[in-house]
């Protein structure tokens, strides 16, 4: 399955990665090379095999419902690019 440029653009948009017109051909080619490697997988017979998501196949541990965190806003926001009145600022969100 070779990717077309438009598909690469769509993927880049889904992943919110800016991609310049100049980068497109090279990116498309590299991605297709990688997909070529990956597609070798399709030859493997996996009939009746259950997918394995976690190597150990253990189960989720549950945490007691208790408040263990305190307000650390000032410390956490010292590393934020833009804050005001305790809020993180982003370009206007339109709904």
């Amino acid at each position: 399955m070779a990717l077309e440029r438009t598909e690469v653009e769509k993927i880049a948009h889904l992943a919110r990665l800016g991609l310049s017109e100049a980068d497109l051909p090279r990116t498309t080619e590299t991605l297709n090379n990688i997909l070529g490697l990956i597609d070798r997988m399709q030859a493997v017979d996996t009939t009746g095999i259950e997918p394995l998501a976690h190597p150990l196949e253990t189960t989720q541990r549950l945490r007691a419902d208790a408040v263990t965190e305190s307000n650390q806003r000032d410390a956490y926001q010292t590393i934020a690019p833009a804050v005001e009145e305790g809020l993180y600022l982003v370009p206007r969100v339109i709904e």
């Binding site: 833009a82 005001e84 009145e85 305790g86 809020l87 993180y88 600022l89 982003v90 370009p91 206007r92 969100v93």
Partner: peptide, 8 residues
């Protein structure tokens, strides 16, 4: 906020 939105 100067044309920005605030996130809480």
């Amino acid at each position: 906020f100067h044309g920005m939105s605030g996130i809480d």
